[in-house]
Structures are given as structure tokens and as C-alpha cells.
């Protein structure tokens, strides 16, 4: 199971890399969202997938699943949600102000 998830993570990272390398801002944002999902999957796999019972005492289990990775990715999902939201707003405002969503045209240093 772990191997499968790791392969899935790899697929997600490659998809995200492809999207991030494109010119359209929206594709880049989708790429960053997928990239963070890949990271979350990796964290939960690294902690070990289901290895025992629910991590509550007095439940008749001897081994427990590690609850920490779940707490970690919960935090990290919230953060990536916020970052994606702000990135989308920025992209919209950039499009309104500059009239383009092509990253090639956002190059350069001077306004003029």
C-alpha cells in the first residue's frame, strides 16, 4: 500500500511540475495546489499507513496508528488552502490590472 501511495505521489509531483512550467498563471496555480497535495500524501505515507487501532487508550488494541501525521497534514491542508486562495485573488487582480495571464509577459524590471 505504501509503495502505491508513493508512486501516486510521484505522479502528482510530475503533473504539478508540468503545470508549473506552463505560461498561464491559472495553470501554475493549479500546479501549486497539486504539488501541496503530493506533499500531504507523502507526509501521511512517511508516518506509516494504517498500522494498528485508533490511537485511543482502553480500546483493546496493543498497537496504534500514529496520529501525528494526520495532525500535520490537517494543518498543512488549511495553509495550502489559504495560499491557493490568495494566489487566485492575486492572479485575478493581476489580470485586471495588466491585462494578461501570460507569465512571459510579466517579465522584466521596468514599468515603462
Amino acid at each position: 500500500m505504501e509503495t502505491l501511495i508513493i508512486i501516486l505521489t510521484g505522479v502528482l509531483v510530475s503533473v504539478a511540475t508540468y503545470l508549473i512550467l506552463s505560461k498561464s498563471v491559472i495553470r501554475v496555480i493549479l500546479g501549486t495546489a497539486i504539488l501541496s497535495h503530493a506533499a500531504h500524501l507523502l507526509i501521511i505515507t512517511m508516518g506509516g499507513l494504517k498500522t494498528g487501532g485508533v490511537p485511543i487508550l482502553d480500546n483493546g488494541h496493543d498497537t496504534f496508528t500514529d496520529a501525528l501525521p494526520q495532525a500535520l497534514i490537517l494543518t498543512s491542508i488549511v495553509i495550502s488552502f489559504a495560499v491557493t486562495a490568495i494566489l487566485l485573488v492575486l492572479a485575478l487582480r493581476t489580470y485586471q490590472e495588466l491585462g494578461t495571464d501570460n507569465l512571459e509577459k510579466l517579465r522584466g524590471f521596468y514599468d515603462e
Partner: peptide, 12 residues
């Protein structure tokens, strides 16, 4: 846009 993109990548 560039600043956010590079920092999202480094957070990853």
C-alpha cells in the same frame, strides 16, 4: 505573482 510562486515551491 513570482514571489508567491517561488515561496509556494519552497514551502513544498
Amino acid at each position: 505573482i513570482k514571489y508567491v510562486a517561488i515561496n509556494v515551491l519552497s514551502s513544498f
